[in-house]
Amino acid sequence: MLWLISAQLVNGIAIGMIYALMSFGLSIIKGLLNIPNFAHGALYALGAYLCYSVVSLGMSFAVGLAVAFLGAALAGLALDRFAIQPVSGSGYLPQLITLFGAALVIEQALLIGWGTVGLSYSPPPILRGAINLGFTIVPRYIAFASVFSALVISAVWLLIERTKFGAYVRAGIERPETTQALGINVDLLLSAGMMLGAGLAGLAGGLALPLVGATSTMGGDMLGIAFVVLVIGGLGSLYGSIAAGVLVGVVQSLMTIAAPAASTAIIYAVMIGVLLLRPQGLFGER
């Protein structure tokens, strides 16, 4: 039994890192714009499709991931300029509805552009097969995806915590009016933050391509989990989503041992439990 728990723990951490990458972008946008990005799932799907198109043209998977990030970032910029900013003075609800509408537009565009049949891509040969850990085997691609996610999250952490740009972003999240008063262009900052968050969603989509393929509705599946992770981590916490992502992955994976059919339901049960005991989330502040 111990080996099975260990095996599921390893799997859960690996999957959790992908959840964390997706939720981290959502968390940045939530922090900067103070709205839940309902189009985040659609940007994730866009990333998967862009990555697929690039590798289909014979280019490497690494280029595919880069294009997934950049393409989704540009889509994020377009969303900010043409969907969010025009209604930003109208309050919270119009922004939510606009983002929801934008998600539908992106999903339909994916259907028109790439068709209704889902797409698959096998990872590069070097990432195929499995690593034998003795007590379990872990697919190489899962291991790569989790390490890569951890590296990306670390890089974004360095960007936010150790650079002037990051300092502006943090200031924009915590004290937008004061930041503006100091002569910093907060609108530009918000656009940059939106691009970064959207780019991370696209990158997560590209990274998920060999695991879940590309379908126009894949964003909806992932968005639910990303929001659960965001709520568990704490809506005001930039880094809570990382720990919460890993927690959700591990809980989901371990649940397969006891009650496999409940492995999806358990993540919602955990969210309810966290909200009851700590309404601000594990790392959020009241």
Binding site: Q8, N11, I142, L211, V212, Q252, T256, I257
Partner: peptide
């Protein structure tokens, strides 16, 4: 569950 998108935990077992 129907609509599951993450199978590695089952496949590991």
């Amino acid at each position: 569950p129907s609509g599951e998108r993450q199978y590695t935990q089952y496949l590991t077992k």
